[in-house]
């Protein structure tokens, strides 16, 4: 960890203004916001993140969950994961989000980690986190990828490129993808809304850029669309051990059925993608079909059709498929 300046702004606008001096809001940013710190401080200790200035946003008034008149749910960026998981509106209307949150990290980490911070959670790629490896295109653009020829059991199989195969680690963001959340940002030039489907970038040739945020952009809250009546959902996370481990494969599914037929499906995957992975392919394979195991398998096959495994993670294709099938089965058979 290098020496840095800690700044405590009075308002979101001031925070955004201060951060706008950074040349990037992505890897290598010299100004960073800190909320729960569960990713940033960790990476600063490893010198993977070396901001000269850290803006502490914890005192901003962004920790509320509010039901809006239009039925949407507005979640402040500073709402802690543990609070959000147990929030009554979330429990009633968006159980898939609560399940995803509670499957993440440990109780201690969830008490610190925030909604905005979790959207920006960085990958657990061992090579990204270890400065002993000079090859990491995400950390050191153009240097190569140590994971492709390295140990990559936990790496991504969807959305990878020849430059990066790092997995996005968040559980919460997977549920948010299925819920079609909208991310609200205050930036140096005003406020804007970003549908979460447009928030994350694929690594391509520039894996250092993980999302569309620009210098000065501060996530202030996330909005969930009004809950669809009669929708059933489930979040299933598969991993080696029962707790405190990132997903090897996870699935957030939301389905509406009418007379045994699926009228609307939302499927998002975790642990397998370079970003929280919305599978429109799986959704198309489900919509209009009977809620049957046969169609769940077809959806799983569709979701993984373009998967590109690495030397150590071929099993993830099968695991992810089983995860999707079970999540859909659980969701559609619940009372």
């Amino acid at each position: 960890m290098i020496e840095f300046q800690l700044i405590t702004p009075e308002s979101a606008a001031q925070a955004a203004q201060l951060a706008s001096a950074s040349h990037t809001a992505q890897q290598g940013a010299e100004i960073r916001f800190v909320a729960g710190g569960t990713t940033l401080i960790d990476l600063m200790k490893l010198d993977v993140e070396t901001p000269a200035k850290v803006i502490d946003i914890n005192r901003l008034d962004l920790a509320k969950v509010e039901k809006q008149p239009d039925g949407t749910l507005r979640i402040g960026a500073l709402v802690r994961n543990s609070d959000l998981a147990h929030e009554p509106n979330v429990l009633r209307d968006y159980p898939v989000l609560s399940q995803a949150l509670l499957s993440g990290a440990s109780a201690q980490l969830r008490n610190m980690a925030t909604t905005g911070g979790n959207l920006l959670q960085r990958t657990r790629c061992m090579y990204f986190r270890d400065l002993a490896y000079s090859e990491c295109n995400k950390r050191n653009p153009g240097s190569g990828c140590a994971a492709i020829e390295g140990l990559n059991r936990t790496h991504a199989i969807l959305g990878t490129s020849e430059h990066c195969i790092a997995t996005h680690p968040s559980d919460m963001a997977v549920a948010m993808m299925a819920l079609e959340a909208v991310v609200h940002v205050v930036g140096a030039s005003g406020e804007r809304d970003i549908p979460i489907g447009e928030f994350y970038l694929l690594p391509g040739a520039t894996p250092q850029n993980e999302n569309v945020l620009k210098p000065g952009d501060l996530i202030t809250y996330v909005t969930l669309p009004a809950a669809a009546a009669n929708s059933k959902s489930h979040y299933l996370k598969l991993r080696d051990r029962a707790s405190y481990e990132f997903a090897l494969a996870s699935a957030a599914v939301i389905v509406m059925t009418e007379g045994g037929r699926i009228t609307r499906a939302r499927v998002a995957l975790g642990g397998v993608g370079t970003r929280p992975w919305r599978s429109h392919e799986a959704e198309r394979a489900l919509e209009g079909k009977a809620a049957s195991e046969q169609h769940f398998h077809a959806a799983a096959d569709a979701a993984l059709r373009d998967a590109k495994p690495q030397s150590g993670n071929k099993y993830k294709i099968e695991l992810s498929k089983r995860c999707i099938v079970r999540a859909l089965t659980t969701a559609t058979t619940q009372a």
Partner: peptide, 25 residues
């Protein structure tokens, strides 16, 4: 403990990547 064959480095050298039994297990 996983060693990277290229440089003999233990790469899962932390308590998140070196998987041990948790209370839930």
């Amino acid at each position: 403990t996983h060693y990277d064959p290229r440089n003999a480095r233990p790469v899962n050298s932390n308590l998140a990547d070196y998987i041990m039994t948790t209370c839930a297990d």
